[in-house]
Design a protein around this nucleic acid. Sequence first.
DNA 1: CGCCTTCTTGACAACCATCAAGATGCGTGG
DNA 2: CCACGCATCTTGATGGTTGTCAAGAAGGCG
Lengths: 233, 233
Amino acid sequence: MVGGQADLNILAATEIFRFLPVETVEEARSLAVRKRIAKRTVLYHQGDAADTFYVVIVGRLRAIQTAPDGSQIALRYLGPGELAGYAALSGIPTYPGTVTAVEDTHLFSWSAHTIRQLMGKHAQIAINALAVLGTRYQETQTRLRELSTETVERRIAHTLMRLAQQAGRRTAQGIEICFPLSRQDFAELAGTTLHTVSRTLSAWEKDGIVSSTHRYIVIHRPDVLEQLREDTL
Amino acid sequence: MVGGQADLNILAATEIFRFLPVETVEEARSLAVRKRIAKRTVLYHQGDAADTFYVVIVGRLRAIQTAPDGSQIALRYLGPGELAGYAALSGIPTYPGTVTAVEDTHLFSWSAHTIRQLMGKHAQIAINALAVLGTRYQETQTRLRELSTETVERRIAHTLMRLAQQAGRRTAQGIEICFPLSRQDFAELAGTTLHTVSRTLSAWEKDGIVSSTHRYIVIHRPDVLEQLREDTL
DNA sequence: CGCCTTCTTGACAACCATCAAGATGCGTGG
DNA sequence: CCACGCATCTTGATGGTTGTCAAGAAGGCG
């Protein structure tokens, strides 16, 4: 389905197809289907049958979960090399969240059946997937604890540092979150409201810790945020 | 290390060694080490090197995560057939939480190295592990959303129903949570305080929805709780 | 039987969500 | 190129949910 040496190199660098013999990556590539989706379009909906598995090549996705009453939280942002649709890997029947594109995004995709067969044939793929899920699971557990025990300000600090780690770009000014993120989006990640996020970031901006211009945030003093996280309130 | 047909049957019924040829279960068993720990003792500590993987045979474990300031939440309760120490599976260097025994507990254990070799040799084990982690990950995401968007009462209802599903026993009176759980323990699961849990359960007890006697809870009217979960507040 | 853990209930206050209104700034179309 | 409109952001005022503090009751275990 997909050809070219470049694609091979790209796939070999993704979190799920790492550490594999070239011929295995080649096999995965030969079974993959390319897909492109435009900014703000939906990749799949919460509740849909989890029949496709994706790897992000270029762009960025946002996974959210919506409650019956309409309120929602952001589960995760996904960038190049990361996998989307873990439900298809795990054999979970329906997607637990909705995934939309934050930017124009290129993907590779496989049917759930295909990717599961690949894992059965090449255990390393399953082991890679396990590493990914383990890491995400751990991160979610930590968010749960933060949400449960910490004040909003510290949670916002945590959230920002996590974003920096996942999607930060070092610049002369500090670390920039390299995709557009509104106050509302940020609030859905931190488990609070856009108002509180706005107030907190304003306060930090006064102190020179961060600055933000139209949906892009730059962290000037990661050390101060780090300290905010650690200080026993 | 471990012998006996009974052990073989037990292992073949666990979530990680399901769907395997007998000889593979046999292989896993031959590499396992038995372990017993008494009520209230620690299996491993948060931050310890994740070098051992466990499967619960009899008893019950509690996984908690502690914040630097000492506050903690319950990540999960683990019963027979469930795995403990997923970090050792995923290649995460240290345990993200502390696991203690709620009751006297029998376990099988493998070194991280051994279990990872087993997965490399038998992809189905890795795929089983993936199913387990995927399910737990999804559950944690749901808890995160609940904690983020729902009122305490609804969260307590959710928590109780989840407990019923994971460790409930049908009786003439209703569904009983089949291990001792203090108000404090419950609060750490629901992400609130023991006071709020106490108040809420008292109110429900007045309405005949639940009853509780010394760390054991019985749900008389699961339907009412279910409705509480769904009603848009 | 007594101590200690667990549980209940009340009073209070703080944190943060909600409501409200205005300011800013980007994109689009004229 | 400019201006209008809409999305986004800021800031203030208010109130509710729920955590915190306090003290006593209940019940099990040694």
